[in-house]
Design a protein around this nucleic acid. Structure first.
Length: 585
RNA sequence: CGGAGUGUAGCGCAGUCUGGUAGCGCACCUGGUUUGGGACCAGGGGGUCGAAGGUUCGAGUCCUUUCACUCCGACCA
């Protein structure tokens, strides 16, 4: 009762007694505009590595994003649930991810010594929930989601809300009787729904082919907000609509450099003495040959469950780069790490002179698919100071895999057009999961023939809190963020230039009440500050529009500022409200 | 995980080398002036100097240990 008494109905929207604190100075570690402005504008407060408090302004934006996601998901037939954040580790052991997920999974014990994890994603919990209630194909399809805090103990949290350890994520899971239904009523439906969500949020985004990562599964697409500061590299085709995360990008194989007339590359098979020639660059100079005709060796240590480590070798064409995620997937490792020269020597390998031919039998290796059946290549001879000439790669065998990183200027595998790189922020990811979790967790139903079948699943995520950062990365200027209409903490702000002038304060208050009547979310800056101070703050809050009630009142005018263009429009007092209605829409 | 660095008032920092009563700017409080692009004057409050131990008459400063945080990298032999 006491608390209620103290809260005026409209108190929150009055700057003078709101919990909004802006700052002229940014935290010294912040480099990204989104990080700087979120802190300076008083949207969030950093509280530890990758941990943030959401203050009233930030919370309002977060709720807007959440509400839009919820509306679209609900209208697509999804149902919201909320699963326990602390999850018993048994479920994670059942799915096999207790080990696989690695150190990002925060584990701890309760007073009875029972082991738990903080949910980094909730496939296990959701499958567990559904398998207890859904027993028949008649109950399918089903699409459940939640919007809930997640915790991932990231190696290196950074960039504010972009890569936090604790963050708000929408995670959804769909259950189907078969693959076709999953693709149509799960995956594709979510693809459309996500597009609607990001469009409503006012974002410029691309849907790209993606790697499936630790979640596992087959087909997957990422929703990328295009921004220079994005952590992901996206490969985009200039000529067609092909777009992919570099971790999954494809290209058509590189072509041999055009030989000069009358010249053809010929090689005499055999070993060639190449003292101290251990890099591709040196090799090309030595033989006067293009890197296209060489094979590059990359050694890594692959980490598997239960601490198993294996040395692995990857071979790609000398003019190409290894894509680590692809390489990791090709050997089904949890992670690849660097390996020292000493370790290579210990394993009987010759750093600088490693090649695919004549390796010891116990070495695990993969060769890039583009090299399949290729001839006239130079590769390390697995012997110090020797290279093998005219190496021929067979066109059969299980040791081929797509390993190369697509570079700018490579050719599109769909249309042959030129590919280029751009940066993106991953804000959504949809997967065709199949039975990856339903099988180990024995989540089954009875089909039309009374036969037990595992659910065919899809899983879908949106980084809700990351979206705040993504919106700003795409929408800001040197003065602060520029929220999109759908995400701004308020529709409009009213600045009363000088509250000591009764006519200004009264008009501000009057407009404020009128806008409230119209359900337009309004913040009135009625603080005892000077005009310059308030307009700077307005720009730092990034609210789409601002009404300045100030000295033009004498001419019967106020001004409306457009945050994006920073243009001021003078308008007579009796027309303001209808004009605002138009603008805010 | 490897490398580098930083912990001093709510925030941003100086002081540490060369030990001797803890400082500056912003923010905050009081009073006054000012009021259309982050005002000014005067006065004021606020710190176990990340933690623990050691050296010393005396430690923010030197030594040891530890914790936390940040940045860069994790790429081809």
């Amino acid at each position: 009762m006491l608390i209620q008494k103290n809260i005026k109905k409209d108190s929150f929207m009055r700057f003078s007694n709101s919990f909004i604190y802006t700052s002229k100075e940014a935290p010294s570690d912040a480099t990204l505009p989104s990080h700087i402005y979120l802190i300076r504008g008083g949207f969030i407060q950093g509280i530890g590595a990758g941990l943030y408090n959401f203050l009233p302004l930030g919370k309002r934006v977060l709720e807007k994003v959440r509400a839009i996601a919820k509306e679209e998901l609900d209208s697509a037939g999804c149902q919201e649930v909320e699963l326990s954040f602390v999850t018993p580790s048994e479920l994670w052991m059942e799915s096999g991810r207790f080990e696989k997920y690695g150190k990002e999974l925060l584990r701890f014990k309760d007073r009875k010594d029972a082991e738990f994890v903080l949910g980094p994603t909730h496939e296990e919990m959701m499958v567990n929930l559904v398998r207890q209630y859904v027993k028949s194909y008649k109950q399918l399809p089903l699409n459940l989601y939640q919007i809930k805090t997640k915790f991932r103990d990231e190696i290196r949290p950074r960039f504010g809300l972009m890569r936090g350890r604790e963050f708000l994520m929408k995670d959804g899971y769909s259950f189907h009787k078969d693959e076709a239904d999953m693709v149509e009523n799960g995956f594709n439906k979510m693809k459309d729904t996500y597009s609607k969500i990001f469009t409503r949020l006012g974002l410029d985004f691309r849907i790209v082919d993606a790697d499936s990562g630790a979640i596992g599964g087959s087909g997957s697409k990422e929703f990328m907000v295009l921004a220079d500061s994005g952590e992901d590299t996206i490969v985009v085709c200039k000529s067609c609509d092909y777009a992919a995360n570099i971790e999954a990008a494809k290209r058509s194989p590189t072509k041999a450099p055009i030989a000069k007339e009358g010249e053809e590359v010929e090689m005499t098979p055999g070993l060639f003495n190449t003292p101290n020639i251990s890099t591709i660059e040196d090799l090309c100079k030595f033989f006067h040959i293009d890197a296209y005709y060489t094979i590059k060796a990359v050694a890594k240590k692959a980490l598997y469950d239960d601490g198993v480590e294996k040395l692995v070798l990857f071979f790609v064409r000398g003019d190409s780069d290894l894509e680590e995620t692809k390489a990791c997937n090709s050997v089904e490792a949890n992670e690849l790490i660097d390996i020292s020269e000493e370790e290579l020597i210990e394993a009987g390998l010759v750093p600088g002179f490693m090649g695919p031919i004549g390796l010891q039998e116990d070495i695990i290796y993969k060769i890039d698919s583009e090299l399949k059946g290729q001839k006239t290549l130079i590769a390390g001879a697995n012997k110090k100071d020797y290279h093998a000439i005219d190496v021929q790669i067979p066109d059969y065998g299980a040791f081929f895999a797509d390993l190369v990183a697509v570079s700018e200027g490579d050719c599109c595998s769909s249309c042959g057009g030129s590919l280029y790189h751009t940066k993106g922020i991953e804000v959504g990811h949809i997967f065709q999961l199949g039975t990856k979790y339903s099988e180990p967790l024995k989540a089954e139903f009875l089909d039309e023939n009374g036969k037990r079948q595992p659910f065919v699943m899809g899983t879908y995520g949106i980084g809700i809190s990351r979206l705040l950062a993504a919106i700003i990365e795409q929408n800001h200027d040197e003065r602060g963020p520029i929220w999109t209409k759908a995400t701004a903490p308020f529709d409009i702000e009213i600045i009363v230039s000088n509250i000591k002038k009764d006519d200004e304060l009264n008009l501000g208050d009057k407009l404020y009440s009128q806008l409230k009547e119209l359900n337009i979310e309004t913040l009135i800056d009625d603080r005892k500050e000077r005009f310059g101070f308030k307009i700077k703050d307005y720009e730092l809050l990034g609210i789409p529009y601002c009404i300045i009630v100030g000295k033009k009142i004498a001419d019967g005018l106020v001004e409306i500022v457009d945050r994006r263009s920073l243009e001021k429009e003078e308008i007579s007092i009796d027309q303001v409200v209808s004009r605002v209605k138009e603008l805010v829409g």
